[in-house]
Design a protein around this nucleic acid. Structure first.
Length: 562
DNA sequence: GCCGTTTTCGGCCCGACTGTTTTCAGTCG
């Protein structure tokens, strides 16, 4: 993963936001955003490639990026950063609060954080302000509450990038090094990153020197805690080589899982700690994590299952399911191209998918009802022809032409059944009217499931971590409808979506629903995101049989409607 | 600020919803 690209893209995105906040031209804002997106999704490292090759990057942006690569910022960004307090930018994170309102709140009321805004609303300071009626204020308060719910945590995509970077940057100083904690359990929200190392204490100094470290919180011989530039806390612990496995077991958690495992040890008259499994002074297991589970007479419990949801009892009975693995996936059923809001061409996306060794691959660009995408039936059909023509160059991978439909407020989708029948895969997703009542939303999803032209419900809860909460629906009723109609529920692997989340996957599976683990790729690097979807699936104890895109194409086609 | 098979200027992703307004600004996907 080209990290330089992500960082440069983040700087440009920040610049776009600041530029918008200070009343900059909207078309230029869009240019910066477009370039940021293109750089983030560019398959080559812009540190070594010419950034001008990236579509949407011209002379002016290339100059900014070049300066950023040299010194970690650029002049115009520094200027705007000094003009706009950080808190104003944070204000725009509140749903329904955009740049105009944020700037007004700062200029007129010196409000510079979501917390200050909540205080001002509750104190009645904004009563009677033009454009700020009771409903608006109420919505803002709810938005702030939502924001605070995820506070201090980041989604797995951010945490994984930090963790992998820490591990990579320190591996030359360590005999062993790996991340543990909730990230290893593949939780969708991560509060901090735990890294364990077998190394000499000098690794702590090397750690503190890393460019991604913005603040050292605490530092000793055994443990150092830092905050990274992404705002995430990382704890590095040096552990003895002979207790590596026990330390991984202990620091991977969860607390509930560890309590249950330790109880097993106690029942046998043994003791389990981060240093090993002991019978008195005798070491029964310590260096190897799996041996600890074996010594306790149970199956090895994969980290995503370690949540205290009965996995210890199941492992003792030898009844843990065989979890779906990334290598089981035979394809991807939800991806985009630059025909709509993706940034890579059909040819490039298909070629990248082929390199992954898939047996099948569906292109599912947006359907017309999402007006901004300017999709038409003619364009979709032309894309289908182009895809069929590409098939000859990819003899090992079956190309499927799909679409991502929009589920309207009443549950209907973009096209009538006879048009839907032309597509190989029909994903249908909610992209509007997020505020519907629970009853309306439930009826909406059920109607979509009952549509014979809908195969998969895409990113069902429509949440965006840190930005938008899930829609309200009676999921039990929706899943029953999905199971009854043979409608697949998607596990959208895009890390800020992680949707369905694991608890809902578990509920859906209980009702007999099948799943597809899709990347929802909008650029070539996004194809990698399926690993996050696999994490969700494993947390929900899914087996390959539960996941339709582990199946052969023949079985998949038989299962899909129409 | 970017871009070009109407190419160096003049467009650029469009339309709908929400809450407010009395005709529309702001926000979103």
């Amino acid at each position: 993963m080209p990290r330089t690209n992500d960082e440069a893209a983040a700087a440009l995105q920040e610049y776009a936001e600041l530029f918008a906040l200070t009343g900059g031209d909207a078309f230029r804002v869009r240019s910066y955003q477009k370039a940021a997106k293109a750089i983030a999704g560019y398959p080559r490292d812009i540190g070594s490639a010419d950034v001008r090759q990236v579509p949407g990057v011209g002379d002016a942006i290339a100059k900014k990026v070049t300066e950023y690569l040299e010194r970690g910022s650029f002049r115009q960004l520094d200027d705007l950063r000094s003009k706009v307090p950080d808190g104003v930018r944070r204000l725009t994170r509140v749903p329904t609060l955009g740049p105009k309102t944020a700037m007004m709140l700062f200029d007129r009321f010196q409000i510079d954080s979501p917390a200050a805004l909540a205080e001002a609303i509750e104190g009645g300071r904004l009563k009677g302000v033009k454009g700020m009626g009771p409903k608006t204020l109420d919505n803002l308060l709810r938005g702030i509450a939502q924001l605070e719910a995820a506070q201090g945590k980041v989604h797995i995509g951010v945490a994984m990038e930090v963790a992998e970077r820490v591990v990579e940057s320190l591996s030359e100083y360590a005999e062993r090094i790996d991340y543990a904690g909730s990230l290893r359990r593949m939780k969708d929200l991560v509060g901090d990153v735990d890294v364990l190392a077998v190394a000499s204490p000098e690794i702590m100094d090397r750690f503190k020197e890393q460019p991604y470290v913005s603040e050292v919180i605490a530092s000793g011989r055994k443990k150092t805690s830092v905050r990274t530039s992404a705002g995430l806390q990382v704890d590095l612990r040096v552990v003895p080589a002979e207790s590596w496995g026990a330390a991984m077991q202990y620091f991977t958690g969860s607390k509930e899982h560890n309590v249950a495992v330790r109880e097993m040890a106690v029942k046998k008259g043994w003791k389990l700690s981060e240093y090993g499994l002991f019978d008195g002074d005798t070491v029964l297991a310590a260096a190897d994590e799996a041996e600890i589970y074996t010594a306790l007479g149970m199956q090895y419990v994969p980290p995503p299952m370690r949540e205290g949801h009965g996995e210890v009892a199941a492992a003792l009975r030898g009844e843990l399911p065989t979890l779906v693995e990334i290598s089981d996936l035979k394809g991807d059923l939800h991806t985009h191209t630059d025909l709509t809001d993706g940034i890579a061409s059909l040819e490039d996306m298909v070629a990248a998918a082929a390199r992954r060794g898939y047996s099948y691959y569906a292109v599912t660009d947006h359907a017309p009802d999402l007006a901004m995408q300017r999709m038409t039936l003619d364009k979709a059909r032309a894309q289908r022809e182009a895809l069929r023509a590409l098939q000859a160059s990819h003899p090992k991978m079956h190309l499927l032409h799909g679409t991502e439909l929009n589920i309207g407020p009443d549950g209907s989708v973009d096209w009538p059944e006879e048009i839907l029948a032309e597509f190989d895969v029909r994903v249908a997703s909610v992209h509007s009217h997020f505020q519907q009542s629970k009853a309306e939303m439930t009826a909406r999803f059920i109607a979509a499931c009952e549509n014979p032209g809908v195969d998969v419900i895409g990113h069902p809860t429509t949440r965006k971590i840190g930005r938008r909460g899930p829609v309200d629906a009676d999921w039990e009723a929706v899943f029953k409808a999905a199971a009854r109609t043979g409608t697949v529920m998607e596990i959208d692997s895009y890390p800020d979506r992680s949707d369905l989340p694991a608890d809902l996957v578990r509920l859906a599976r209980h009702h007999g629903v099948k799943f597809s683990i899709d990347s929802d790729s909008h650029a070539i690097p996004h194809l990698d995101h399926q690993r996050f979807g696999i994490g969700i699936a494993q947390r929900a104890w899914l087996t390959p049989d539960d996941v339709v895109n582990t199946w052969s194409l023949t079985r998949l086609r038989r299962f899909l409607k129409g």
